[in-house]
Nucleic acid binder design. Structure first.
Length: 950
RNA sequence: GCAGGGGUGGCGGAGCUUGGUCAAACGCGGCAGACUCAAGAUCUGUUGGCCAUAGGCCUGCGUGAGUUCAAAUCUCUCCCCCUGCACCA
């Protein structure tokens, strides 16, 4: 049994003592690997191995490829969860404390976590311990925390630059808001961690006839305004007459919506009344001018939107149903006729079957037609109407074409935008925000509302010039996996204004308004550059870290002497910082989970472009998918989180690393499972044992199977090197790990026993295993009589001279012959009831090879036969016979490279092996010399088989 | 809704960039055998389906169409699944 923890301890200590992972400026080409900050609000679980482990594998690989590698690490604490956690600890939140227990946080530490700073302090230690245990080749001298004062100086400097470039702007912004706490609320501030989802609706105003006031209807589909036949209100709800904003007009909306909307605009109520009282009035459609009546709608909700709904019976099943019900109840409205505004093939998305059955009686009223194809009626339950609404909305949005004059042929989304803009231009429409997933409840118990704050600071990622420069930089970045490029491209186009200041949290104060904190994703966009100097400036009085220091180090602005003088920082330190930045930042590889593409990673590119010279723009970005546990997503609520330290202790760092990092492509989720890890352990054990037993092998002359092993090794090195360059780790480690073991097994089964060959093979395999399984590789490397560090060795180089395709081909011939013989033997046994006693393997003559190759080349039977001129007459006769048989497959025939002698040789050499596999005697014969009647059936690479029964 | 990714055996997933030599590498699971008093572990073999029974044939890569001598692979259509959608790490 391998004692993983003993081996891990041993080598982790040895590496630290030898300082082999400490990056210093040097002569070799630099390569800097950074992975997204871990957040210091929880320790790591095994899922984190995916990103950090991948970065470590790359760092270790590049070191072996002759690069001077720097792999630093730091921690993020400037986040809201950390504040929320402190608060929840204070409130004695059971669920949270449960989670803390999963991570073995001692009670006394939990108690201290009412202080957010203690949370950060505790978990940064935990994180470092975990990363150490996982065997990451990190240069720990450079670590810092995002709330360290010297880092804040760096962030402030960065924001100074962004501001000087005009990228910081101020404006209105909708946020989830708790009226009780008077605070913006995010996911971490709500019960059950629900993210408040804010959605924009269009509010359209309808002028009342004969009254200086408006109804405000909220809608998602302003383009249907052409089809409005009436307005719905809720009969038994309370409504108010109020002012909205400062346009001096009066508006009718429900009382409840007035409360909600008061967080978005100034609302002053002048009168309150019952919905009942509004009935019977008329108001004007702002688009068409038509006067429409006000009716009660059964489905209208006073707390949704404005509590007033514009009715479009042609395109809204609810509206249609409401009118039908009113009609049934005898409500007079002879003048109401649905007005169709767009055309669509009804039921198209349901497939041919349902659409074929549907017989819409009134195609002029799509809303009714939708009810009909769903076999439902206007008096159906709300859920059915809802379903019909969704279907209609979706199909019309997808395929609908406008039929309204002036908008003919426009798609629904285009028309929606245009109508909205037109109405807004006239002042007849404005945006209102709604909580799409209401109710969302703040941890204090108050329902969350949408508030529009008007003094929010934004980073303007929409700035056209900035975007263009970013795209330029993006085009040159190496993306791994390459297919992530599309997502980035979309993200760069999409990102616009990003709020950068927040009211509370740990972190750097916002320089333009010290009452705010810089939002935690925005404070960490260019921090990888801070690693290049963090070790050199730690301990310097932070007040000396003035902007001119950073300007010089990162942008070479100013003069070294002057900077030293004005900051008071030692000349040599500044010089060293500049040199370190210039050196390390030439080539950087950035690693993160793919979930960060749409925020951190995109902002990472933007901010680098804004701050640094071209030479220091990002060079490579690596994203990876996440980790599942036994087929399920890992999550705290599922309780299937395995803390990293527990995992390492239980399974060993290397088996975990192979399973989580090496068994999957970057873009697919990896699967952690106990079964997979134990399979990996068995295989590591096989390699370990094989090395331990090398002494039992001999050192004779190389045999065919030895050449085969060398050939396989050479191909393996070439293949896995290619894969590693693209970080296709699954591919690389299938070859290096799994297939190596299969090859060794076959080698021994074929009678291989050469100590030199096996040792050569294993040495290279062990070295290639080093990036992913560093501890075991180190151990085995030393068992192979080396006294250097595998972690500091060179990656193996493929010796193309060792490639021997002929030998590999002949081994495949042995395999296929065995497979065929088994099948034939089984058939024979089934037919005759007798077991095979002797197998005759008859190898095809040379002329057949010529014929086959000629056909493969010419794709023409007669031409191929011509090329056989000069062969003995009898062969020619047989050749034309055979050629006739091959004629109908003329396009499928492949050429062969083996001669009859080579095949005979290869099969004879393996005849003992074949005999063992088949359990019968094996005789290998040449076609010419065989007495078997089946000899003529033999083909190149497909010997004829004849079995003598017992 | 928008954006990105995906749909291949019992399962996880290769293959798609560059069409043919290729359907299913590698792993898990299943089955059979070896070892064992036995179980487990391990090793060996086998494993898409169907019809065959001297090594063969047919069928099969979400749906439907198209391009081509040839499509898992290229184009289009539709369906379904996953992820993200901002002040939140």
């Amino acid at each position: 049994m391998i004692n993983y923890s003993e081996i891990e301890d041993k080598w982790q200590k040895a590496w630290a003592e030898a300082k082999i992972f400490e990056g210093e400026v040097g002569e070799k080409p630099p390569y800097m690997v950074t992975a997204a900050f871990p957040y210091a609000d929880m320790p790591q679980h095994i899922g984190h191995l995916r990103t950090y482990g991948t970065a470590d594998v790359l760092a270790r690989y590049k070191r072996m490829r002759g690069f001077n590698v720097l792999f630093p690490m730091a921690f993020h604490a400037s986040a809201t969860p950390i504040i929320a956690i402190a608060k929840r600890i204070q409130d004695n939140d059971k669920e949270l404390i449960e989670t803390m227990k999963i991570f073995h946080v001692p009670d006394e530490d939990i108690k201290k976590m009412v202080d957010p700073r203690y949370i950060a302090e505790y978990f940064t230690k935990e994180l470092e311990t975990g990363m150490h245990a996982a065997g990451y080749s990190v240069d720990w001298r450079r670590k810092f925390v995002s709330i360290d004062p010297f880092f804040s100086k760096f962030v402030e400097w960065q924001f100074g630059i962004l501001n000087s470039k005009g990228y910081l702007i101020q404006g209105k912004h909708p946020v989830g808001w708790c009226p009780h706490d008077n605070n913006a609320v995010g996911m971490h501030d709500t019960k059950h961690d629900v993210e408040p989802e804010i959605e924009v609706e269009t509010a359209v105003r309808f002028k009342l006839d004969g009254e200086d006031a408006y109804f405000v209807c909220s809608t998602y589909r302003p383009e249907t305004i052409f089809g409005v036949t009436n307005v719905f209100i809720k009969r038994d709800a309370r409504y108010v007459l109020c002012s909205m904003g400062d346009d001096g007009k009066s508006y009718y909306i429900s009382k409840m919506s007035a409360d909600t909307l008061s967080h978005q605009t100034k609302i002053t109520v002048s009168k309150e009344l019952a919905g009942e009282e509004l009935l019977g009035r008329k108001c004007a459609n702002p688009m068409t001018g038509a006067l429409v009546p006000v009716y009660p709608g059964f489905f209208v909700k006073e707390d949704v939107g404005t509590g007033v709904v514009m009715s479009v019976p042609a395109h809204a099943p609810f509206d249609y149903a409401a009118l039908e019900r009113l009609r049934k109840d005898g409500y007079l409205m002879d003048d109401i006729k649905p007005i169709k505004v767009l055309d669509v093939q009804i039921g198209r998305s349901l497939g041919d079957v349902s659409a074929g059955e549907a017989k819409p009686t009134q195609l002029d009223v799509p809303a009714l037609a939708y009810l009909e194809i769903l076999h439902t009626k206007p008096d159906a339950i709300d859920d059915m109407l809802e379903f019909a609404t969704k279907l209609e909305y979706r199909e019309e949005s997808h395929w609908g074409k406008m039929i309204v004059k002036g908008y003919e042929g426009m798609s629904e989304p285009a028309a929606r935008e245009r109508v909205r803009k037109e109405l807004e231009a006239k002042g007849d429409a404005f945006d209102i925000y709604v909580l799409q997933n209401a109710p969302v409840v703040c941890r204090c118990g108050t329902p969350v509302v949408v508030k529009v704050v008007d003094d929010q600071w934004f980073l303007n990622y929409g700035d056209a010039k900035w975007k263009d420069t970013t795209k330029e930089a993006f085009g040159k970045i190496n993306m791994l996996p390459e297919k992530s490029r599309n997502a980035f491209s979309a993200a760069i186009d999409w990102i616009d204004l990003r709020a950068v200041a927040r009211a509370r949290g740990l972190g750097t104060k916002f320089p333009l308004d010290r009452n705010f904190i810089i939002e935690p994703l925005s404070d960490s966009t260019i921090y990888p550059s801070f690693y290049t100097i963090s070790n050199a400036i730690r301990g310097i009085d932070v007040e000396k870290l003035k902007p001119e220091f950073f300007d010089y180090v990162y942008r070479k602005v100013g003069d070294l002497d002057a900077v030293a003088k004005s900051t008071g920082i030692d000349y040599s330190v500044i010089k060293r910082c500049r040199e370190a930045f210039e050196y390390w930042y030439q080539y950087t590889s950035r690693h993160s989970g793919s979930d960060l593409v749409f925020n951190h990673l995109t902002m990472y590119i933007f901010n680098h472009v804004a701050v640094f010279d071209k030479a220091y723009w990002p060079k490579q970005i690596v994203t990876n998918a996440l980790v599942n546990y036994e087929g399920e997503k890992m999550s705290k609520s599922l309780g299937n989180i395995v803390p990293l330290l527990d995992g390492v202790k239980k399974y060993g760092a290397d088996p975990l690393r192979i399973n989580i990092i090496g068994a999957t492509d970057l873009h697919t989720e990896s699967e952690f499972s106990n079964a997979a890890v134990s399979g990996i352990k068995e295989r590591l054990g096989y390699l370990y044992d094989t090395i331990g037993e090398l002494g039992k092998l001999e050192s004779g002359e190389l045999k065919r199977i030895d050449y085969w092993l060398y050939s396989k090794l050479s191909a393996k090195i070439e293949h896995s090197t290619d894969s590693m360059e693209k970080l296709e780790l699954r591919d690389a480690y299938t070859s290096v790990f799994y297939e190596s073991i299969l090859e060794l097994r076959r080698y021994f089964a074929r009678g291989g026993n050469n100590v030199i060959a096996v040792k050569d093979f294993l040495s290279d395999v062990v070295l290639m295993l080093q990036p992913i399984a560093p501890h075991m590789a180190e151990e085995m490397w030393h068992m192979l009589d080396n006294d250097t560090f595998a972690s500091a060795e060179k990656w193996p180089v493929s010796d193309s001279g060792m490639r021997n395709e002929k030998v590999e081909l002949l081994e495949e011939l042995v395999d296929s012959t065995i497979t065929d013989a088994k099948q034939v033997g089984a058939l024979m046994e089934k037919k005759t009831g007798k077991k095979a006693a002797k197998l005759h393997v008859i190898v095809a003559s040379g002329w057949k090879r010529k014929l086959v190759n000629a056909i493969a080349k010419e794709r023409n039977i007669s031409k191929a036969l011509e090329s056989l001129q000069g062969e003995p007459a009898s062969d020619k006769e047989q050749a034309s016979k055979l050629a006739g048989a091959l004629a109908k497959k003329v396009n499928e025939i492949r050429g062969v490279s083996t001669t009859q002698e080579e095949e005979l040789d290869g099969l004879r050499e393996a005849s003992a092996y074949m005999a063992k596999q088949l359990g019968c005697e094996v005789s290998v014969e040449a076609e010419g010399g065989s007495r078997s009647q089946r000899a003529a059936r033999s083909m190149p690479m497909k010997p004829s088989l004849d079995i003598d029964s017992a």
